[in-house]
């Protein structure tokens, strides 16, 4: 679905210095995958995300989305409709005074015929579990609800990929759970490819594959089990492994033999309480 080849992104900062944000990234994301990208601030996660729907263009290398090269201007509209983006702050993404109008904004904008828009809005709201709020004012909703409206707005464009850049950074625990549940459902039930950027390791645990970025490079990647059991390497990259993985790693260091790849509470309890 997405193929990133030797992607470099170099920009000139205000002092005239060239800064390399991505140093030749290679990444293939098959259709239907749920991929999480983690990494310290300034590691290039958001820059990479912005290449996936041509908000940024490669300095060199390629970014191909569903066979379309993002560098070719004629592909722009198609790519933007294939790849929806959701950002951190739900308040900055909501444009209308009524929920259903907000969700309709995208399809209206790309010229979807009127009668079809209604159906798309209804389906999008149903998919994020917000149908009963269709006539509500978005600013009176909770953070998690607002963010689900933002996701519905993207869904109404019927994208094949949704890129979410720290969608839960501003949410309370309940809101965070709502978003992760919603995203997983869209992935499993509708087969939408998900690229999910987060600082919460517990959220990345839900993905099919986790990619660790640092200083414009992909440091390592693999299943959540492969990635999160590398406790020391994660720490070096400015990240923190889940608690169970940290405890397991400390126990191993003091000579206790434990199976590899313990990352969840349940797995740790299983081996310790057997």
């Amino acid at each position: 679905m997405i193929s990133v080849k030797e992607l470099k992104h170099i920009y000139t900062d205000a002092d005239g210095h060239e800064v390399s944000a991505l140093n030749g990234i290679n990444l293939d994301i098959p259709a239907g995958e749920f991929i999480a990208i983690i990494g310290a601030n300034g590691g290039g996660k958001s820059t990479l995300a912005r290449h996936l729907n041509a908000l940024l263009l490669p300095t060199s290398g390629k970014c191909i989305v569903d066979g379309l090269d993002t560098a070719e201007e004629k592909n722009l509209w198609d790519i933007r409709q294939h790849v929806g983006m959701v950002f951190q702050n739900p308040d900055n993404q909501i444009v209308a005074a009524i929920v259903e109008e907000d969700v309709a904004f995208g399809p209206e904008n790309v010229g979807v015929p009127g009668p079809e828009i209604k159906g798309r809005v209804d389906r999008a709201l149903a998919a994020v579990g917000m149908s009963e709020y269709a006539k509500h004012a978005p600013h009176l909703l909770s953070g998690g609800q607002k963010q689900r409206i933002a996701i519905a707005g993207v869904l109404a464009l019927e994208p094949r990929v949704i890129v979410l850049d720290e969608p839960t950074a501003m949410l309370d625990p309940q809101g965070r759970k709502e978003i992760v549940r919603t995203v997983k459902q869209l992935n499993k039930e509708k087969g939408i490819t998900i690229v999910y950027i987060t600082h919460y390791m517990t959220e990345a645990l839900e993905a099919d594959r986790v990619v660790v970025m640092e200083k414009g490079n992909i440091r390592f990647s693999g299943t959540p089990h492969e990635v999160f059991s590398r406790v020391d390497e994660l720490e070096k990259a400015g990240l923190e492994a889940p608690l169970a993985a940290k405890i397991a790693s400390e126990l191993r260091k003091s000579g206790i033999k434990l199976p590899k790849e313990i990352i969840t509470d349940e797995e740790l309890a299983e081996v310790l309480c057997r």
Binding site: G39, A40, N41, Q88, E166, A169, M170, H199, G238, L239, E240
Partner: peptide, 11 residues
């Protein structure tokens, strides 16, 4: 008010 929102674990 949420001084750590959006920061990575190290920061």
């Amino acid at each position: 008010d949420e001084p750590s929102a959006g920061l990575d674990p190290r920061s």
